[in-house]
Design a protein around this nucleic acid. Structure first.
Lengths: 147, 147
DNA sequence: TGAAGAACGTCAGCTTCACTGACATTCACG
DNA sequence: CGTGAATGTCAGTGAAGCTGACGTTCTTCA
């Protein structure tokens, strides 16, 4: 990986690609001991955020398709981190909850992922890192309600 | 696209994903009139950066695999934006150069992409946008020479 | 009450992106 | 020359995520 010609280092797209790649690597590394991916951690986070969500609600919160959520939950259920139970009030739905193991994994994996983020931001001074986060939020959340 | 639970808006990974998605959309929109993708523009940029590059050199500069470069060049050659010519000094190599049409497209597409970047950064004040770029560069280029 | 329509979860198939592995050609070096 | 490396090419693979179709269940309205 020598790479990255000067013509490209000014392009936002290129910078984003490499930044995300690096973050993904750090994250995967940090999460490996827990046997979960960054996306699976995100699912756990969403499920922990509110009690008793249906699969589709969880998918909506994560911003992924419901069919994608099926695969995530299949994997997490295999690892016994979440459990699907039919919703007694609406038998079309599955209520998805964290297991005890899931809650524990979530807690420790989140800490590991936080550490990865800190390593990712290490090249920046503390104040710059804070500003960076804020700016990223501003451009990311800006106008998602377009269509 | 309601989306994006509060549990996730603090996660860098999630923010990156959505920021990149938005940038990609703006870019694709801006580039559509030229019939090229953001990646193809990047290839053109790299080729314009130095005269007479082999495919593999170009791939190295772009940070992609040489097999990936084949597909890019196939597409760009179909559009008559680049030309492959056997290198007289080393007949294993193809020298890849911009055509006149390619150079023209590059110039205009770059301007359009710049405008897209400006729109992407619009939520930020000018000074913040500059800092954001710098920070992104710092974290992206940080330590790619790991392995 | 019962029939039509919508919501939910699931599955198969497709698309995109980029990689690995294998191959032929060409070069370089002894 | 002849062996080994570099180059371009192609087929196959894997991840990620989507669309479309299907069966089940709920809702609503006549």
């Amino acid at each position: 990986m020598s790479t990255t010609a000067p013509e490209l280092s000014g392009r936002l797209g290129h910078l984003f690609k490499h930044a995300q790649l690096r973050l993904a690597e750090l994250n995967a590394e940090a999460l490996a001991p827990f046997g979960i991916s960054g996306r699976e951690l995100a699912v756990l986070l969403v499920l922990a955020g509110q009690e008793a969500a249906s699969q589709q609600q969880a998918a909506g919160r994560l911003g992924v398709d419901r069919t994608t959520m099926v695969a995530f939950l299949d994997a997490l259920e295999d690892k016994e981190l979440v459990a699907r139970r039919p919703d007694p009030d609406d038998r079309r739905r599955n209520v998805v909850v964290l297991t005890a193991k899931g809650a524990d994994t979530l807690k420790r994996a989140t800490a590991a992922s936080d550490a990865a983020e800190r390593r990712f931001l290490a090249p920046l001074a503390a104040a710059d890192a804070t500003r960076f986060r804020a700016a990223l939020q501003a451009v990311a959340l800006h106008d998602d309600a377009r269509t």
